[in-house]
Design a protein around this nucleic acid. Structure first.
Length: 575
RNA sequence: CUCCCCAUAGCUCAAUGGAUAGAGCACUAGUCUUCUAAACUAGGUACGCAGGUUCGACUCCUGCUGGGGAGACCA
């Protein structure tokens, strides 16, 4: 018997007791107080269906439902039916299912498996990534992992914004003040090297507005494929990308397909010209091509400049169509910050107006901005929390903590653990917020390894592994000798309940594109385990209890590992 | 001026329209000769304001106040 069978069986007893149609949807809840029961069903929906008071229905069912192979007893509290389950059956079902399914545990196959193009990251090649990009990268990666558990095929896509006025700004600054330095000669990571010139440009342009014109001239030269300009562009771009890719590697983020704006930016133009012929948009008096979206609750939007060149949205129109042709996905998800909410509303609407039906299945996963105590992050002024810097800072902190605890540890092992712990703290910190929520960055909180943090969960996992190692049963298996009726104290029941609902949590993450539910969940699971740990012994318990508890904690470890991996976080066997 | 997002404890965040609104941080006092104290235990405080829908609202709707973002031939 598995978890699904148990749920169905409980629901079925209620359906039968009331002669409800078998497709009548009933959901199981957890009662607020464990003393009330193990699982519950509320009667409000049933009451609507059979026009009786929910209290009467609950009372009726609690009298009528008999104990069976799963249900111990039934009680009603007002309009709620509370079920007490037979502990041994319940524990055995859940724990053995986890043991059998391992990393597949909790995965729910959607009826229709979809092909999904997931665009995330999309960096500019004129600067290194900062905290906001990390949020994007972590969200995108985690979401890809989570959606895969539902059987969806995910194509992770990156769009490198390697062209445009912002790129020319750093190029111009280098031309003027670079003195032929290189990132190698200065021993600076490529993206930082380029980013420094971008910041320098923005500083100098304050004193000398003429520089902006020069940057625009440079852009024109670039578009005309001027040899010297292209050479400089290629050099600086290669450096910047090299640096960005190093950061990707460090944080464990990958892509299935990478697009370069410089290669595809002209693509949207033809689509717009075709739409023009069909009168879906129009040429303004000054020659620019515009679309009127006021009928759709939006504004007018320029699609092509008077000189025929592309604007930002032009290339997005082109790329979305290109990707549709290449992959024929069921859904496209764009992971992009909330400051572009309007842009994507307009983009999807324009595509629909142009007759691309698939645009209805495009979705902008908008996430909130990160602000610093001083205010908004500003790349152009260098007022940012740099991604590489904060990772390094956290690794150093983690290293200190590790050495404090294990002074004799091998240096390589220290480095390895420090990296895992630092990234865990950072990833967990950024993922535990609901994506839509803005984050007020608090340096101390984010650098912490204690409390509601990734390392806390990792620590819980390491504790379990330590017990399993000492038990000589690193993988306590299903065994007919295991007597699950030995389990049943408050902490054990609470742990089992949480394992029981894991797949519901995961399903919500899939449905709502939201990894944060998993964060909340593993924190709670870890807390409950740590309470159990302090109150009850595993290794010192008598034989049959010990064995059952080993299976329980092993199952918890599996679920923690699964969850952390879905968040892009590695576990450690020792900390 | 218009549109979008947000408002919960001193601070940072949780809470599929349902039972007594939860964590962490900070503060106080405890717990390591016992499976790793990155842990645990005990202390108390909150749904911005005003209406509405509902058997039932932190959750949905309207208005207001306050904060953030957008409405560029920037990306």
């Amino acid at each position: 018997m598995n978890i699904e069978d148990i749920k169905k069986s409980i629901i079925n007893t209620v359906q039968k007791a009331l002669d409800l149609p078998s497709d009548f949807v009933l959901d199981l809840d957890l009662p607020p107080d464990p003393k009330m029961g193990d699982v519950s069903i509320s009667c409000f929906e049933i009451a609507k269906h059979i026009s009786q008071s929910p209290e009467k229905i609950a009372a009726h069912i609690s009298r009528k439902v008999q104990a069976n192979s799963i249900i111990q007893k039934v009680e009603n509290v007002g309009p709620y039916i509370n079920f007490f389950l037979k502990k041994n059956v319940w524990f055995e079902s859940v724990l053995e299912q986890i043991y059998k399914q391992k990393q597949r545990f909790g995965n729910i196959r959607e009826e229709k498996e979809k092909k999904i193009v997931l665009e995330y990251s999309s960096p500019n090649t004129n600067k290194p990534q900062h905290l906001g990009h990390l949020r994007n990268n972590f969200l995108g990666w985690s979401l890809a992992q989570i959606l895969q558990t539902a059987g969806h095929k995910i194509i992770k896509v990156n769009l490198i914004n390697d062209r445009g006025i912002h790129i020319c700004k750093s190029m111009l600054a280098y031309q003027l003040w670079g003195n032929n330095k290189t990132s190698e000669s200065e021993n600076i990571k490529g993206d930082h090297f380029v980013g420094d010139y971008y910041v320098l440009f923005e500083k100098k342009v304050q004193e000398n507005p003429e520089l902006l014109k020069k940057a625009q001239e440079l852009l024109e030269k670039w578009e005309k494929r001027d040899k010297k300009t292209r050479k400089l562009w290629k050099e600086m771009n290669t450096r910047a990308l090299d640096g960005i890719n190093q950061t990707y590697k460090k944080i464990g983020v990958r892509f299935d397909k990478v697009y370069y704006e410089s290669k595809i930016y002209k693509r949207g133009k033809n689509i717009i010209l075709k739409a023009l012929k069909k009168d879906l948009c129009y040429v303004r008096d000054d020659g620019a091509v515009e679309i009127d979206l006021t009928g759709h609750g939006l504004d007018k939007k320029v699609l092509l400049r008077a000189d025929g060149t592309s604007v930002y949205i032009t290339q997005d129109i082109g790329l979305s169509q290109l990707r549709y042709k290449q992959f024929k996905p069921d859904t496209c998800i764009y992971v992009v910050g909330s400051e572009q909410d309007y842009h994507f509303k307009a983009l999807f609407k324009i595509l629909q107006v142009f007759g691309f039906e698939w645009a209805r299945n495009c979705y902008h996963l908008s996430y909130g901005l990160i602000s610093l105590p001083k205010g908004r992050m500003k790349s152009r002024e260098g007022e940012v929390v740099d991604a590489d810097d904060i990772i390094l800072e956290m690794e150093n902190l983690a290293e200190k903590e590790i050495i404090k605890r294990s002074p004799d540890l091998d240096n390589n092992e220290v480095k390895k653990r420090a990296e895992a712990i630092a990234l865990s703290a950072l990833k967990f910190y950024l993922l535990k917020f609901t994506p839509q929520q803005n984050i007020k960055f608090n340096p101390e909180e984010s650098l912490s390894f204690e409390g509601d943090t990734g390392p806390y969960v990792q620590y819980t996992y390491a504790r379990i592994q330590s017990i399993l190692r000492k038990s000589k049963l690193s993988e306590p298996g299903t065994d007919s000798r295991i007597d699950y009726s030995e389990l049943g104290n408050d902490e054990e029941i609470e742990l089992l309940k949480q394992l029981f609902v894991y797949q519901n949590i995961l399903a919500r993450c899939v449905d709502e594109y939201n990894p944060a539910y998993l964060c909340t969940y593993i924190l709670q699971l870890s807390q409950t385990f740590n309470k159990f740990y302090h109150k009850h012994h595993v290794l010192q318990a008598k034989d049959n209890v010990r064995h059952a508890r080993l299976v329980l904690i092993s199952a918890i470890a599996h679920v923690i590992k699964n969850s952390l991996n879905l968040l892009g976080i590695d576990v450690l066997d020792e900390m």
